[in-house]
Structure formats: C-alpha cells, structure tokens
Write a protein that binds this DNA or RNA. Structure first.
Lengths: 195, 195
DNA sequence: ACCTGAACACCGTTCAAGT
DNA sequence: ACCTGAACACCGTTCAAGT
C-alpha cells in the first residue's frame, strides 16, 4: 500500500464515487468540491482538472443516475410478460429506484442543468421515457389498449409514475403505503387505456 | 421619501418579497441572505432577527407558495361544474401554477425541509391534496365514478398532475404541448375511474 | 499531463455592542 | 426590540508555479 503518488491516477472516478456517497447521505447541499478533494487526499484545486466546475460534476452524477435508473427499469421490463404486467413492473422499478436514491433522483430532475446540459445527459434523461413508449407500443400492437398517440400515452404514464416517485421520495404520500399507490395507479391507467 | 430609518419597520416582509423575485429569476442557488440584506439596505446580520437561518426563509417562501397554489386551485374548482370538468380544471390550475412559478415549485417540493418542517408548512403542503380528495368525494357521491378509497384515488390523480407539472416546469416533456398532456391525463384518469 | 499553494470574492452564522 | 460590525469557518474558481 504505497502512499498516494503525486499523480493520483484515478481521481475523476474516485471523486464521482465519493460524491455519490456524500450525495446520498447529505444531499446536494452537503456536497462540496473542497471536501471531496480532502477525502481524496488531494489539493482543493485538483478536481478542476477533471470537472470544469461543480455543475459539471453534478451533471456527471445525474447522467450516471439516469443510466442506472434506466438499467433497472429495462431489467424489470425485459422479462417476458403481458403488457399489463410490464407496465406495472416499470412503475415499480421506477418508484423503487426513487426511494433507494432519493437525493440522486432529486438531482436528476432538478432544473439546474437546464441550459448547459450535455447531449449525453439529455439522452440519458430521455431513455427512461423511451422505455415507456416501447411498452405502450407493444401493448398497442398486441391490441390490448386503445390506439392513440403512443408518445402522449407514455408521457401520461411516465408522469404518473414520476409524480408518485417524487412524492414518495419526499415522504409526501401522507403515510399511504407506496406499493398500494403504485398498484392503484397502474390499475387506473390500465382501466383507462382499455376503456 | 425619508432615508430608511434605523428600524426598518417591515424588514421581514421586504426580505420575503425580494427573495421571491430573486428566486424566480435565479433559482434557489441564486438566493443569498447577504444579497437580500444588501437589497434591503440593511446589514448582513439583520435578517437573522426575522429568520433563524436560511432554511427558515426558504420554508416561509415554500409555505406562501403552497398557499398561493392552493388558492389558485381552489378558485379553479370553485365554479359550479360537473366533477369531470372540475378535475380537469384542478389539473390545469396546478400545471399553470407550476409553469408560472418554476423555481418556487421546485423549492416547495424539494426534500430539504423534510426534518425540521413547521406544522404550518406541512399543513400548507397538504391542502392541495385535500382539495383533490374533496373533488373525488363529490364525484363519488354523485355516483359518477367508481367507489374505492377516495384518498388513494386522489393520491393517484394528484401524482399524475404533479408529475406533469414537474416535467413541464423542467421542460422535460420533449416538446409535447403541455395542454395536450394535461387533457390526455384527465381523459385517461376519468376513463379509468368510470370503467 | 496532473497537481499544488496562494489569492480573490463570495457565503452563512454568531455575538458583542450600539440606538 | 431591532440593527451593526467584526470575526469565524467555510465555499467555488482561477492561475502561476511546481513535478
């Protein structure tokens, strides 16, 4: 175990990992570049080699969050099942991710990175929505739900799950069991789509 | 127009008003107690007489935001109309408020004030949801929609509108016209409820 | 290429002291 | 009661200089 060499070698990665840990424990406000540098045993100016500014680090964190979330949702939807079950599984995966990564989700959907967002970040943010569209399209081509613009339908479904995820993550469901709300939302959506 | 007297007289109110303006222009991150003090022509330590810390000011801002929002929603729902239209009006009012007060809404639903929130703040946050419950109950007692726990139904409806509001405020609807998504969501919800 | 050290212009919070 | 001024411990960002 040698002391840290002058060239850290993997600073960018270590900063990101430490940042994710700190984020989940203390929220965005608890995140300071100088503290991250201290944790990594490096001068406070070192991170600027790897992230232009603090926002760049937050954006990188957001992007990896979107990738993880989409991954979890994609796995939930991949299992062969009826569209009805796949939509439910999508909702469950979304809400579960939200509850397991409260602060990360808040960062991901904070308006902050609105203007200068990377193309990669935008694409990552879109992929969860794309997944929803594909489930809707499958259900439509199976003739199980009403025709109608699949994007709009997916947007409504996604918004519903997003709303539940955000409220659940913020403990604003007034103590209603999350699983019940997710189930009720899936039922209601499906009932509306098959009406 | 005399110079500001030593005792400002209305500092708390002026700080809140200036804070709301700054918030809407620059977001929470653009909000600094010291800057607000400068704007009010007062020393940087003066605000602490009126707000224990920065979070207290943010909480006060949130609370007044919730009051305004509920007020707008209540007005939208007050007009005598069929439950179907009242639910739609509720959704419209919510989303309109969200788009007109992007940063305020983000603050209101940030998890920040989770632990030390005032009872007043919590109550204010609840009132929009209460309004939704009452619309659902009216629809149920009119026999227009399926019976079932009105709180759960309201929670799903509220989540849907909340999700649309948040995504719209963050310009994450991929360019889909907000009004269309709101209408589609209302239609889908109502179809599910009357199925 | 990667990092350090010092410097600059900010913060929030606290506390004696003033009026 | 309400506010000031100074002080403390932090920030993010920049930039010459070191290895």
């Amino acid at each position: 175990m040698p002391e840290q060499p002058y060239h850290h070698g993997n600073l960018r990665q270590e900063l990101l990992e430490q940042a994710e840990t700190t984020l989940s424990r203390s929220g965005v406000d608890g995140l300071s570049l100088r503290q991250l540098a201290r944790d990594a045993g490096v001068s406070h100016a070192a991170p600027s080699r790897h992230f232009r500014d603090k926002q760049a680090l937050l954006d990188a964190l957001s992007e990896s969050g979107f990738l993880k979330m989409t991954d979890a949702m994609a796995r939930a939807v991949a299992a062969p099942a009826a569209p009805r079950e796949r939509l439910f599984a999508l909702a469950e995966a979304y809400v579960r991710f939200a509850m397991d990564h409260t602060e990360l989700l808040a960062l991901m959907y904070s308006t902050k990175h609105a203007p200068g967002a990377t193309a990669q970040l935008i694409a990552a943010g879109q992929s969860a929505m794309d997944l929803t569209v594909s489930v809707v399209c499958d259900a439509q081509s199976g003739g199980e739900i009403s025709t109608g613009d699949p994007t709009t339908i997916a947007l409504v479904a996604f918004s519903t799950f997003h709303g539940i995820a955000m409220l659940a993550a913020g403990q604003m469901l007034d103590g209603a069991p999350v699983a019940e709300v997710v189930a009720a939302a899936s039922d209601l959506l499906w009932a509306g789509l098959t009406a």
